[in-house]
């Protein structure tokens, strides 16, 4: 249970012990020999709850499973184990009209502004199709609704008749936002919304999302690797490492007093804009372990400067560390470790 949550309140979207593996291609010989099939362990028991009206940021380095999680949330992928619940219902069990209603209410915005729009459809066709398939408006009101949507995402009215290739990356992302919003969803899952855009355009698109969230009281899951961006827009932040949420908490608490050494390392590694300050040495040693072969015990033990025996034997649970702040670290179980003072690069 996190802060600001009324007891007994059902989260709008909740992820329970979700596991997702992607099997590697295997040769016929290997199959005959009965060799175990290797699999990329993309998600290894993710827990997360998202409440109505909040923005949850999901951060982590590439390969940590952020995008896989985002795709599980909108049911583009089905988890191998665990479940995703929407308003308490397991989304894997929804079918027919319920499934369509879920698709309408939980929408996704994609990372790549170039491949996420059908190059052969005009903006009017893209939006009109979603509007008519979900019967959002009677046929004769569809044009008026498209005009409203273009206003909403600050695109000129004549954009409707144009094809995606006639727009810039930032404009395309706004078309993507309009497409997601046209079915009036409750939840928006934004997977790396602006990482493909120029920095100058990023702010515009992110601010647009913030305004829309307020205007339409949306619930947003914002997946990104840019920490400053996530800090700027999220109420709560979840940090992922190797397919697991290792720390989650209110944005300010998490950024000012991280309870997991990996979060600390991630924050320290973020580039500083102040030229007088030198970025501290990264607190995480070495490379990300292979997701084909996960370490025993804590997933972070091979890179953690503080690891001790228990970290190699027992995988820490995501435990309460005060005020809706949870971390999966044996150290933080006994109070706040003073990572700031003790983090020094090993000589």
């Amino acid at each position: 249970m996190t802060l600001g949550e009324k007891p007994g309140d059902v989260p709008l979207l909740s992820v329970e012990e979700v596991v997702k593996r992607f099997p590697m291609p295997q040769s016929i010989l290997g199959r005959i020999a009965g060799r175990p099939r290797l699999a990329v362990n993309a998600l290894n028991g993710v827990n997360l709850s998202v409440h109505r009206g909040e923005t949850v940021g999901i951060v982590g380095e590439s390969g940590c499973g952020k995008s896989t999680l985002a795709r599980c949330l909108v049911r583009l992928l089905d988890p191998d184990d665990g479940r995703v619940r929407f308003e308490g219902r397991d989304i894997g069990e929804l079918a027919g009209a319920e499934r369509r209603a879920f698709n309408r209410r939980v929408q996704m915005i994609f990372q790549d502004p170039y491949s996420s729009l059908n190059p052969r459809m005009t903006v009017r066709q893209i939006l009109g199709e979603a509007l008519s398939v979900h019967k959002m408006r009677p046929r004769r009101h569809i044009s008026a609704r498209i005009a409203e949507l273009l206003d909403l995402v600050r695109l000129p009215q004549d954009a409707a008749g144009r094809y995606p290739h006639e727009f810039s990356g930032g404009q395309r992302q706004r078309i993507g936002i309009a497409r997601a919003l046209c079915v009036e969803p409750d939840v928006l899952v934004a997977d790396e919304l602006v990482s493909a855009l120029d920095v100058s355009v990023q702010a515009q698109v992110v601010n647009l999302l913030l305004q829309l969230q307020e205007e339409l009281s949306l619930t947003v899951v914002f997946v990104a690797h840019d920490l400053r961006l996530v800090r700027h827009i999220s109420h709560r932040v979840a940090v992922m490492y190797l397919g697991k949420v290792i720390e989650i908490g209110p944005t300010e608490a998490l950024f000012s007093a991280p309870r997991h050494p990996y979060t600390k390392a991630l924050l320290d590694a973020a580039p500083e804009l102040d030229p007088g300050r030198r970025s501290r040495q990264a607190a995480a040693r070495g490379e990300l372990p292979s997701p084909l072969d996960l370490p025993q015990g804590c997933l972070f033990n091979s890179r953690c400067p503080f690891s001790f025996e228990r970290c190699f034997a027992e995988r820490p649970l995501l435990g309460e560390r005060g005020r809706g702040h949870r971390a999966a670290c044996h150290l933080s179980e006994f109070g706040t470790p003073t990572f700031v003072a003790s983090v020094k690069a090993p000589a």
């Binding site: 049911r75 499934r99 996704m108 491949s115 993507g176």
Partner: peptide
């Protein structure tokens, strides 16, 4: 495999569409 196909799936469109 492109995102616009996934966008269609996320929108709940039928495979035929």
């Amino acid at each position: 495999r492109l995102d616009y196909a996934d966008a269609g799936r996320a929108m709940g469109y039928t495979p035929a569409r």
